[in-house]
Every structure is written in C-alpha cells, then in structure tokens.
Amino acid sequence: MIEVRNLSKNYGNHRAVRGLTFEVAQGEICGFLGPNGAGKSTTLRMITGFLEPTEGAITIGGVDALAEPIEARRKIGYMPEACPLYPEMRVAEYLRYRAELKGLRSAKIKERVDKALHDAKVDDVADRIIGQLSKGYRQRVGLADALVADPPLLILDEPTAGLDPNQIRQVRELIKRLAADKTVFLSTHILPEVEAICDRVLILNKGQLVSEGDPARLRDGATGQEEVVLSGRGDEAAFRAALEVVEGVRIKSISGRADGERTLVSATLEASDPDAAEHVFRAIADAGLTLRELRRKQASLEDVFSRLTTKERAAKEEEE
C-alpha cells in the first residue's frame, strides 16, 4: 500500500529524514516507532503530501504520490499529530465539509458522515461545536475525519497522545476493528501500543530506520535486559538466599527496612530469561517467604534505542 524509496528531507542544514526505504503491505497495521524528533511526523507528512521530500519516491496504492499528489491523497485518511480542527464548526458540519472536500458525491455524504460519526463514537456530540469539546472527543473527531471518505489507507500520527487510559483503550479497539478492511500506518512513541495493535513495526531514530519487524521480535531484542522488581516480608538474608539460586537472574540490589514489627524487603533483579518472573515467584513461595509485589519492569524505549543505536555505531565502526 505504501512504498517509500530512499526518502530524505532536509530543513536547511538539518537532515530530518535520511534515505528511508520501507513498504507497508495491504491490510497491515504497521507501527512507526521512534522517540520524539526522530522524523516520524516529517515522514508521515511527506507520505500524505503535506511536505515535499528533498529526494526519494513515494508510491501510495500504485500511485506516484509526487507526480499525482491529489490522486494519491484520495487513498489516504490522515489524522495529524495534535489533530487540528476548526473550533467554530459543529462536529457533523465539519465532517460534511470534509466529505465534500474529499470529493464525495452529495448523495453519499450523509450516509458516510453518519457512519464515521458512529465508528469514531462521536455521534453523541454531532451537533456540538468543536471548540467546546474535550481533548478525547476532538481526537475522535479527527479520526472520524480520516474515516469519512472511506479511504483504503489510514495514516494516524500519534492517535492516542493526550488521551486518558480509557480513551486510549477505545481508540486502540477502534483501530483494530478498522484494520479488517484497511491498511493502517500509525506512529507512536509508546512501545506497548505497538505491541497491543501492530502487526509490524518500523523503528526510526534520527531520521533513519534502525529496525523493522514484528513486535514480538522487537520485544525479544529489547527484553534481553528485563528487570524484575519485587518486595516481600521477611528477612533480607532469606530473600537473598532464595533468589541467588534462581536460574537466569542476577541480583542487582536488595534492601530491607523495618516497618513497625515487620521487616520489608525490596529487590531489583536483572533477568535474561523471559520467564524469570515465574521462576522467582516459585522460588520465593518454596522458601516460605511472603511476596507482596512482583512485576516485570519493561525496558524503556530509550533503552531500546540506546541499544539499537549503539549496535549500529558498533557495526559502523567494524565496517571501518
């Protein structure tokens, strides 16, 4: 659905995107992952035709987006980051305007607007003025706009940014539902989001693609340095003894403190095994100690990137 070849964008001397090449297949939900400033939005803006690339080629559903930008845009429903809207319009009016702007025949406009209102779950605010809506509603109005012309490709820039957890869940479910008959390309800087909904993920750093693959593989790579955090009641030495024998785990820190009559122990373990937490649980239970909390602490995105970029640098140095 999307084919990007050797895409670059310079802002003066700053090279925001450097020679990106990737594809997004039809029917896929593809995540575009990267820290802030990695060039995600710039890339999406080039794909949607808002920005012109410095070099490179973009094909949308077989249409050369640079030669026929309007034809290419017809295939895209785009929701920009921060989701800008006209605050003076009413929701349904706005969607009707957008539907007309996207070239829908007047006979189909009402039907499509109703469907978009329903799909994005904004039908209850259809007659409200956009400027008076909450952030979550506005985000969904933006989503409805992306859906209204029923495009085969949805490009969503940070679709869950600024939403509360409940809203995030709803949006994710919606995207999953839409993916049944659409290709979705979404950018995010939240790792679990990619895990939650994406079939495939592209990781961008400093304008370059650093990794590509399915979320599980990414996770594998990233969880090599997983940490397990626990706290329990009992003697610090007993805990240390129990934990030291667990396979694939190394104690990073352990401490105990008195809380009235009880002693509370908390520890952080470095784990190389994905199932390390289970082993720890069993070991603590077998030792007859009381566990108050046990959780896996996932490696932060920053960790992933630092590792990926370090690898890269190392590879480069090797080449040289």
Partner: peptide
Amino acid sequence: SRGTIEVLMTAPVS
C-alpha cells in the same frame, strides 16, 4: 497558526 492547514492540504485538493 491553528495547524488546520495540514488537514486542508492533505485532502485531495489543489
């Protein structure tokens, strides 16, 4: 200034 230019110019309009 509102940023709506992005929504406008990514619609299929010249």
